[in-house]
């Protein structure tokens, strides 16, 4: 089999004395959709942020397509090549669109300033992306004028504009009104169908069941279990996983919708 697109190898991440990621290892193949679940504070966001190079790691290494992307600051060896590229896109719970720019400008900023793409070309690409996320009529609007679901779809389009090979989603529907969750999940499903490699932190179990190739359960900075969704939901191998899923289903209780 081909080498995994993402290799996370015994990564240790600490904030001060607190170990937030404790020798986490994970591999993701091209085109795979990996859903990460786990209780609050278990290190899910931190894992994505380390992958996106937003946080340095203390030990271990991260490889993207066989190329060193991050390396423990406490480890020996050569530092990763910083010019490595923009192979990772990330979407955040709080959207983080640039409020002073229109939707179009949000999407074209990085292609123009980082890739040096001509304005016309960047806009052509942006229009195509806006069509993909269903916002073609919002190109000249500022983010504050959009609903949460529209903002999040614009944020997805912005990330895609750099043509990443891996997309990271950190609880991207958690800040949304319930009726707006579906439109964002639909956009993500579309991406998955087109073969995008995705790491998705979410509590949307319907999405995990339908779209994920594998579900990873994290607890206290470690990966407890990794399995295909049907197996992890019906017969989790670990007691901690089962306890977490039971609590989750209980909480969702009557409000569960099929998505």
């Amino acid at each position: 089999m081909a080498e995994p697109l993402v290799v996370i190898d015994r990564v240790v991440k600490r904030y001060g004395a607190e170990t937030v990621l404790d020798r986490v290892s994970l591999e993701v193949r091209t085109g795979q959709v990996m859903v990460v679940i786990g209780p609050s504070g278990s290190g899910k966001s931190t894992l994505l942020r380390c992958l996106a190079r937003l946080e340095p790691i203390q030990k271990g290494r991260i490889l993207i397509d066989g190329v060193l992307s991050a390396k423990g600051t406490e480890d020996e060896g050569p530092a990763p090549d910083k010019t490595g590229g923009h192979d990772i896109g990330m979407v955040f719970q709080s959207f983080n669109l640039f409020p002073h720019l229109t939707v179009m400008e949000n999407i074209t900023l990085a292609p123009r300033r980082v890739r040096g793409m001509a304005a016309a070309e960047a806009e052509t690409q942006a229009i195509e992306l806006l069509r993909r996320v269903g916002l073609e009529d919002k190109r000249d609007v500022h983010p504050a004028r959009l609903s949460g679901g529209q903002q999040q779809r614009a944020a997805i389009a912005r990330a895609l504009a750099m043509r990443p090979r891996i997309m990271l989603f950190d609880e991207v529907t958690s800040a949304l009104d319930p009726e707006l969750v579906g439109e964002v999940l639909k956009t993500m499903r579309g991406l998955a169908e087109q073969g995008m490699t995705m790491l998705v932190v979410t509590h949307e179990m319907g999405f995990a069941r339908d779209v994920a190739d594998d579900v990873v359960f994290m607890d206290r900075g470690a990966i407890v279990e990794r399995a295909p969704p049907d197996r992890i939901f019906s017969q989790p191998a670990e007691a901690r996983t089962r306890a977490f899923l039971e609590r989750l289903l209980e909480r969702e209780g009557g409000t569960r919708r099929e998505r």
Partner: peptide
């Protein structure tokens, strides 16, 4: 901080994040 994060993941250099994203705000 999310504004810095988002522009960093998009590949903008530090001064570009400052100039195009943070300073206008």
């Amino acid at each position: 901080r999310g504004q810095w994060d988002a522009s960093q993941v998009l590949g903008l250099a530090h001064w570009q994040r400052l100039w195009w994203v943070v300073l206008p705000q």
